[in-house]
Design a protein around this nucleic acid. Structure first.
Lengths: 227, 227
DNA sequence: CGGCATCCATTTTGATACTG
DNA sequence: CAGTATCAAAATGGATGCCG
């Protein structure tokens, strides 16, 4: 069962040989926010069958991008984590997200699923390093029944699943509002004004956040409709 | 013929819906160095048949990423170019190349093809913005019978197919040597010393170039061989 | 040559049933 | 819940032929 490759001595092609197959980069995306169990992965990836998921995980393990571990107590179940090589795929996923934010996030469709973690990644893709010099903040996002946090430290941002220890800022909102904020379909300020979102903590940070995550101007990519 | 999508309202997934199919990002890679004709594309993409190539090009055209044009005289033949939306895929291709440089460029295999344009892209992926502040230079690369040039302007680099107007620096070498330089398997200095490469022009630039394109330390990704 | 349709063998995938 | 086994549908690759 020879694995299919492009047979090119090219860094781009070699990378695609490893992570270019269908679902693979989305699996990496899921693992960016921390360890996940088999079932968690499948739940967030509608259409990916158990067989293919198992095959992909095995492949990523063999390729040194994912490692299978046992979650710490009290969970104690098996889970998958990114290795160092996997972590370095962050720029790949973020650059895909950046392009998508600009060119492909026209209105959500009814047949599409949505997970708040994806929107957190979207925020991360919007993060403006330049505007963040000297700023230090820990934000917690409570979205429906899911919680994420972001740690802004000088010019970097780090996002993870779960609550923060000592958040400077807490945003509480619902799936739909957070989705729209992340996609620049509305602004945080606007959502707070209309009481679709609530914030606690450092009020001055609210203004700063708008500049740290500048809204993306979506561009029309298809001048004429395909007939 | 329903187009297959992930059905996720996620910037990463939406982008992969557009450019995630097999061959698609490699087609974009080919077009990054300028307009290409149907045959040129196929020549550089062994294994991609004419039918699939035509289908991919049509898809990219419909998606507003590629535009079909007529080359200026004297060529006058049809060719494909990236649109603005296509140009903005540069970070995607470069991030893939960056990861590959670090984790996947172990020695070339006999069954792999190689094109100097890919190595130029590799150099671009190695380019260190930080080290380039204030530097301005035009370099021409003559690799076998192909010519490329790079325009370094403050903190940016731009690479294109074809000769430069007034190069500050010209590197002449063969496919294999250029491949090895780009992949950090040797250095430009070393190649010049052993006469595998020749340089003309500003000699001080040679030293600077080494810092503009810091060698990538390839990391072993697979601790143990798959049994 | 550029571009595309057509036929066919092989892979990949999606979806579901099934097992520990 | 984690994963295997199975099978039908779709995508791919390779060859060929056609037409301007």
């Amino acid at each position: 069962m020879e694995q299919r490759t492009y047979h090119q001595y090219c860094a781009t092609a070699r990378t695609l040989d490893v992570v270019g197959e269908r679902w693979t980069l989305l699996l990496v995306r899921e693992l960016l926010t921390g360890p996940k169990r088999f079932g968690d992965l499948q739940r967030n990836l509608r259409g990916l069958g158990t067989g293919l998921l198992a095959a992909r995980l095995k492949h990523l393990e063999q390729q040194g991008i994912v490692r299978k571990t046992v979650l710490p107590p009290p969970a104690r179940t098996a889970a998958y984590v990114l290795t160092a090589a996997g972590d370095e795929l962050v720029p790949v996923v973020l650059s895909l997200a950046q392009w998508g934010m600009r060119w492909a996030m026209a209105d959500p469709r009814d047949d599409e699923t949505f997970e708040p973690g994806w929107a957190v990644l979207g925020l991360k893709a919007r993060f403006d390093r330049g505007a963040a010099t000297g700023i230090q903040a820990v934000c917690e996002f409570r979205i429906g029944d899911e919680v994420f946090h972001a740690r802004i430290h000088d010019c970097t941002i780090e996002t993870n699943y779960g609550p923060a220890q000592q958040p400077d800022f807490v945003l509480t909102t619902d799936y739909r509002t957070f989705r729209d904020i992340a996609a620049s379909r509305t602004t945080l300020t606007q959502a707070v004004a209309t009481q679709q979102a609530a914030i606690e903590g450092d009020g001055t940070l609210l203004r700063q956040l708008s500049s740290l995550f500048p809204p993306v101007e979506p561009q029309p990519r298809l001048p004429r409709l395909p007939r």
